[in-house]
Simulated scan of single mutants.
Amino acid sequence: MSLSSNHTLTTFSRRHLTSALLALAGLSLLPAAQAATVEESVTELQQAWEVINYKTPAAEKEKKFEALAARAHKISESFAGRPEPLVWEGIILSSWGGAKGGLGALGLVKQAKVLYEQAIQIDGNTLDGSAYNSLGVLYYKVPGWPIAFGDKDKARDLLQKALTINPKGIDANYFFADYLVETGEPQKAVAHLEKVMQAAPRAGRQIADEGRRAEARELMEKIKSK
């Protein structure tokens, strides 16, 4: 092979090498360009939570919530300073605690409490006041001092705050109704349960809406049976 042939081959190889490197550079940028937005990531968590909470056998929920909590924590870290992932990480931890049950759940709900408080500090109105609502639920569900931080009065304040932000919300009305039943005011709960049944469907939340309405009907039957 002549020198000119070698030069041509070298030039050809360099061109292809350059093209390959540029292509690889483009591929390395591709994941960043296609990275999920915070809205997409939160939707992913919502949908996974709904399936576990409403469609998964009780015996399997604890492990599935545990895995989802790890995913939620990564999303919270990826979008530091955004309240939405914090709220959903808290909801998932709370649900994991509910599936776990007993004193072993207290560590999880305490973590969830901190996450809700952080979300409120950033923007309490985010996700229609879900951080206030979810924190209020913890305050009336967990034991009081000295075991945990439960406080029915704080719960009422937080749940009412959530209702102020989202007066027609399916979750805000359901949990305030549940709180009223638990604190001995079942007749006051009826109006809120009716709002649950009348609430407008949430886009992409069909499983959650159906599940929450089923819970509302069950709570209504409990009130009527007393």
Rank of each mutant, 00 (worst) to 15 (best):
61 K>T: 04
205 R>T: 02
181 V>W: 10
169 G>N: 06
179 Y>N: 07
163 L>F: 01
15 R>F: 09
82 R>H: 14
105 A>C: 11
75 I>L: 11
175 F>I: 02
30 L>M: 09
102 G>L: 05
108 L>E: 11
13 S>K: 02
89 E>V: 00
63 K>V: 12
174 Y>P: 03
196 V>Q: 14
213 R>T: 13
116 Y>T: 00
165 I>Y: 05
73 H>D: 15
1 M>F: 09
224 K>I: 14
122 I>P: 00
74 K>I: 05
34 Q>T: 06
210 E>A: 15
210 E>F: 06
25 A>W: 12
190 V>C: 14
1 M>Y: 10
52 I>T: 08
164 T>W: 02
181 V>G: 01
111 Q>T: 11
97 G>K: 03
25 A>L: 14
210 E>Y: 03
35 A>E: 14
43 T>G: 10
157 D>K: 09
159 L>A: 06
204 G>T: 09
154 K>E: 12
195 K>W: 07
156 R>K: 15
181 V>E: 05
109 V>K: 04
63 K>A: 13
101 G>T: 09
196 V>E: 14
33 A>G: 07
109 V>E: 03
77 E>P: 01
52 I>Y: 08
73 H>C: 10
37 T>M: 13
175 F>S: 02
28 S>C: 15
34 Q>P: 01
78 S>N: 08
177 A>Y: 08
86 L>Y: 11
221 E>V: 13
148 A>L: 13
179 Y>L: 07
67 A>F: 00
57 P>F: 11
110 K>D: 07
180 L>K: 06
126 T>G: 06
25 A>D: 07
162 A>L: 09
184 G>W: 09
189 A>F: 13
68 L>P: 00
211 G>H: 10
13 S>H: 02
225 S>W: 02
180 L>Q: 10
126 T>C: 12
60 E>V: 06
164 T>N: 05
165 I>C: 05
5 S>N: 11
54 Y>L: 03
154 K>L: 06
221 E>Y: 10
188 K>L: 15
141 K>S: 11
187 Q>N: 15
157 D>W: 02
163 L>M: 05
226 K>W: 08
41 S>K: 10
172 A>V: 11
221 E>M: 13
31 P>R: 11
158 L>V: 04
17 L>G: 01
129 G>V: 14
50 E>L: 00
155 A>R: 01
8 T>K: 09
149 F>P: 00
69 A>S: 11
99 A>L: 06
36 A>I: 10
119 A>N: 01
